[in-house]
Amino acid sequence: MHERTTRRDRRNSRWDEHRRARREQLVDATVAAVGRCGAGVGMEEIAAEAGTSKTVVYRHFADRSELHVAVCTRVAAQLTDRLRAALATTDHPRGMVAAAVETYLAFLEADPELYRFVVAAPDRPVDADPIRTLSDLVGDQAAALVAVALEQAGRDPAAAAPWGHGLVGLVRAAADWWLRADRPIPRADLAAHLTELAWAGLAGLLPDARPVPVPDPEEQQ
């Protein structure tokens, strides 16, 4: 009996691994299809890119929204890694703001259609998406940094969440305009303008400009 259960468990484990791998392949295909067809890519184009049918895609993802969430999760992880690496290059608060803004803009400029695909979530209940939007995830990271800055300045960190998300909203709104306007100014200039504006608000939090340690996302969970 125990042997039969073990064999069944192994088969289930192999099947689970196959499904995970297939889902990753379909996310790869979606990213490639977005690159080829743009942010408005349809499920037919995604299935064709994957070399399969929509029926097969829907065996692994309940609907387009679920597939969108999987792509968002991948892109968010990539951006978060890059932001963390950029923030680690300096411990000066203004330098961290500049690094984060530049990294965000460089990320979306490298693949604007994928960025548009990610931030333009399909219609669905808000609580159906575990990460909501890419901006929300980045906003959480920014809020964690602002909370550290407030605590070090001896101030109540309660404002960290609205300020952190507000900073991301500032950058995203400007970045969205920049893409719609076909990048009328160089990325470096836009990054400098946004850094100056963001720092004008944050500088009051750190009158002595002490270094700010980057919070470890794993410790926050």
Results as ranks from 00 to 15, higher is better:
Ala70Arg: 09
Val56Trp: 06
Asp91Thr: 12
Leu87Cys: 04
Ala100Ser: 14
Thr133Pro: 05
Arg7Val: 10
Val101His: 02
Gly204Asp: 11
Arg180Phe: 09
Glu24Gln: 13
Val34Lys: 01
Thr73Ile: 06
Ala160Lys: 01
Arg155Lys: 12
Val171Tyr: 00
Val101Pro: 04
Arg11Pro: 00
Thr5Tyr: 01
Val97Cys: 10
Met96Ala: 04
Pro162Val: 09
Asp208Phe: 08
Asp136His: 15
Gly166Met: 08
Ile131Tyr: 11
Glu44Cys: 01
Ala198Tyr: 02
Gln25Gly: 02
Ser135Gly: 12
Ala198Arg: 01
Arg4Asn: 11
Val57Phe: 09
Ala200Asp: 12
Leu137Ile: 00
Ala191Glu: 04
Pro122His: 11
Ala188Tyr: 08
Asp16Glu: 13
Thr73Phe: 01
Ala120Trp: 10
Ser13Lys: 14
Ala120Ile: 04
Val119Gln: 12
Ala142Ser: 15
Arg210Leu: 13
Ala153Ile: 06
Leu197His: 09
Leu79Met: 15
Ala85Ser: 00
Asp182Lys: 12
Glu102Phe: 01
Glu113Phe: 04
Leu145Ala: 07
Leu114Ala: 03
Ala159Asn: 01
Ala77Asp: 15
Leu87His: 03
Arg20His: 11
Ala88Lys: 00
Arg82Trp: 00
Leu108Met: 14
Pro211Trp: 07
Ala47Glu: 09
Ser53Gln: 04
Cys72Gly: 12
Leu114His: 01
Pro93Ser: 02
Val146Arg: 03
Pro207Arg: 11
Arg116Lys: 10
